[in-house]
Amino acid sequence: MTDISALIRLCPPPGNPMVIDWEVVEAALGMPLPSDYRQLAETYGPGRFNDYLAVFHPHGVTEYVNLTGPMSARIRGQLHQQERQGRFPVPHDPDSLFAIGSTDNGEYLFWITNPAEDPDRWRITVNEARGPGWFDYDGNLTAFLASVLAGRIRVPLFPKSLTEQTPQFTPSHPVLYKPAPTPDQTPTDTNAIRIWAQANGYSVPPRGRIPPNVRQAWEDAHRA
């Protein structure tokens, strides 16, 4: 049984699959996406599991749950700030973390984007909302959701009540969302980044994902 089949059996999706232009989405992000996430996003659409856990989606209804919105860059900036201030230890390189979901309590789910060019090998990590705790899961996002909702794994950062109810998915109305540029937002014009990087002595591949240090340098150079 595939991961998406296990999740569907456990928590039926709301309706017909959604059509998503993944070429446009990946171009906006400047990176490829895991195949399990594509299936998950198409099957369920935007919404929340057990009224607690929201997975970011290309058609997310607000910037806070939109995959191509500014949240991932903002959260990464917060992690860097925590490291500089010595507040909470971050067990992973913040530049390797891409926020993919959030909870009502303020935890964030991340992809650990290593290796960068093989997204189907990306693992999942979750950080504590207001504390130093982290939880790593050695598997993809869809398998993580199925395991959590079925009670096969216990995430200490999540409330016990999360698995004390019948798994359900509550959809939000899908709308196309195009976020306005902000100082914290990862730029979407990857060609412009490559041109700038080459002009400033950075080594970048001719296609594929922009290295995190180059993205950070671009953001720093273009920060208002």
Rank of each mutant, 00 (worst) to 15 (best):
L176T: 12
T113R: 14
T68H: 04
P14D: 11
P156D: 15
L109E: 13
W111D: 08
A99G: 10
N191T: 10
H80M: 09
Y64M: 02
S102W: 02
L176G: 10
R84K: 14
A99D: 13
Y64K: 08
E83C: 02
E117F: 05
E107L: 04
W134K: 05
W134N: 08
P132H: 11
L7A: 04
L157E: 09
P14S: 12
P94H: 12
D118Y: 09
N140Q: 05
V214I: 14
P211F: 03
G106D: 13
E117M: 02
P91E: 13
L109V: 10
W218L: 03
E219C: 12
Q168I: 00
P205Y: 02
P32L: 00
A192I: 01
G139Q: 10
K178R: 15
T188G: 06
D220G: 00
S35M: 06
R48C: 07
V126L: 14
H92F: 15
V55E: 09
V55K: 06
E42T: 09
P17N: 14
E83R: 11
T142D: 04
L29Y: 03
S5E: 14
A224T: 05
G151T: 02
Q198A: 00
P156Y: 13
L97C: 04
T125A: 15
R9H: 14
A217F: 07
G106R: 09
H222G: 02
L141Y: 06
G151C: 01
P94W: 12
A146Y: 05
P181R: 12
G15S: 14
Q82G: 07
Y202T: 06
Y52I: 00
V61K: 11
P174N: 11
L67V: 01
F49K: 01
L176Y: 13
D120V: 01
W22I: 03
W111Y: 15
P58L: 09
M71K: 03
R215C: 00
R38D: 04
Q78G: 12
T62Y: 10
D138K: 10
F110W: 14
N66Q: 09
A54Y: 03
A221R: 08
H92L: 04
E107H: 08
F98V: 07
T125W: 07
P167H: 11
L40T: 01
S203N: 11
W111R: 02
M71E: 13
T190N: 10
N127D: 15
P205K: 03
E63K: 06
H59G: 01
V61P: 07
H173E: 15
D136H: 13
D184F: 04
D118N: 15
R152T: 02
S96N: 07
N66H: 14
T190F: 00
R194L: 05
H173L: 08
W22F: 12
A224C: 00
D36K: 04
E128V: 09
A150F: 03
P183G: 09
R152N: 13
G45M: 04
P119Q: 03
I20A: 05
T68K: 01
T43S: 03
A28F: 05
D189H: 03
L109C: 12
D184L: 00
Y177G: 06
A28V: 01
L157Y: 10
R209C: 09
F56K: 00
P89N: 12
R38A: 07
N16A: 12
I20Y: 11
N105R: 13
P181I: 00
E107G: 08
P212Q: 05
F49A: 01
V204R: 08
Y137V: 02
Q168E: 14
I100D: 11
P70V: 05
A150W: 01
R207V: 00
I8P: 08
P159L: 07
R207A: 09
D136I: 00
